[in-house]
Design a binder for these strands. Structure first.
Lengths: 156, 156
DNA sequence: CCTTATTGATCAGTATGCTGATCATCAGTA
DNA sequence: TACTGATGATCAGCATACTGATCAATAAGG
């Protein structure tokens, strides 16, 4: 493991770097301006109307301090709106707008194309195995980051 | 692939997030304050004395504008020095200091421990396969990012 | 030798991610 | 009910990454 190229950490950084570049290129080619992080948040809000920011952060494993800026930018683009919660005045309910929904639908082919492109060096079986192994490694180390995934978040 | 959890891009981000958290925790527990990025740069400078910043960037696949700040911080910590090149007055030669070398040696066990910890959910064979698949996917998409790896950089 | 293109380094600006703090609000308990 | 602890959101500050620009210096060509 002395060689950098054999270290999982180094490869993780590099693969993520490529994944982001491919995503941005495909999305821009489709005529949109949305980052991977913004896309994930938008999709999660669409699937969970009136979700609050903390629960959203748990769903997509974002740090709670990061989500504030991401939502700011989505709101600035008119794709989501923040609404005060009646139940708890501390929390904000997030809703996707009509334009957000249109954007999400229109952008999906580019997102899927990006997913294929970033593993274009692998066979179909290899790509599936890579996904399986990453999921397994992530599941075992989930609690080691400040922003763990919270699967059951929707049932709160 | 409709599910976020099956998208290579999402998993790449999550795995990298965990890799960084594990690295920082192990390194801090060992009594050091160095980021994964700073470690990779320090190790590359140690192995390639008097390397210039662009070549270094190619070796570890960093963007050229990112490397400036990373070297700033390594220099500020006294681990490396910048020296004007006699051959080309535009470029800076990077050298590791004695303290840099001591730090690199002392920190290595923590770095290796972190590499094992971030794949602790996988068997040995699975971890090896994950590394192989990431390397293969990265190799095929190397040129898609702004900061591609430049293997032959040392022979320039 | 002189013009032109290229290159090494840096900078401004923007977007993640994190640490640690603050503030308002809520929930549970004495 | 009053107090105490926990929680949702945000902020300041720092470290990656990137886009695109600038500047000095070098290389390549005629």
């Amino acid at each position: 493991m002395t060689e950098m190229q054999d270290m999982p950490g180094h490869l993780a950084r590099r693969f993520q770097q490529i994944a982001v570049a491919v995503f941005l290129a495909e999305v821009e080619a489709a005529g949109f301006d949305l980052t991977p992080v913004q896309y994930a948040a938008l999709a999660a809000i669409a699937a969970n109307p009136a979700i609050d920011q903390i629960t959203l952060a748990g769903l997509i494993a974002y740090d709670r301090t990061t989500i504030t800026g991401v939502i700011d930018r989505l709101a600035q683009k008119g794709l989501v709106v923040r609404r005060a919660s009646a139940r708890d005045r501390r929390s904000r309910e997030l809703l996707i707008t009509d334009e957000g929904r249109r954007t999400l639908e229109a952008i999906t082919p580019a997102v899927e194309a990006a997913q294929r492109l970033m593993v274009r060096g692998l066979s179909g079986a290899e790509a599936k195995e890579l996904v399986r192994l990453m999921r397994k490694a992530i599941a075992a180390a989930n609690e080691l980051s400040r922003a763990p995934l919270r699967e059951g978040a929707a049932e709160r």
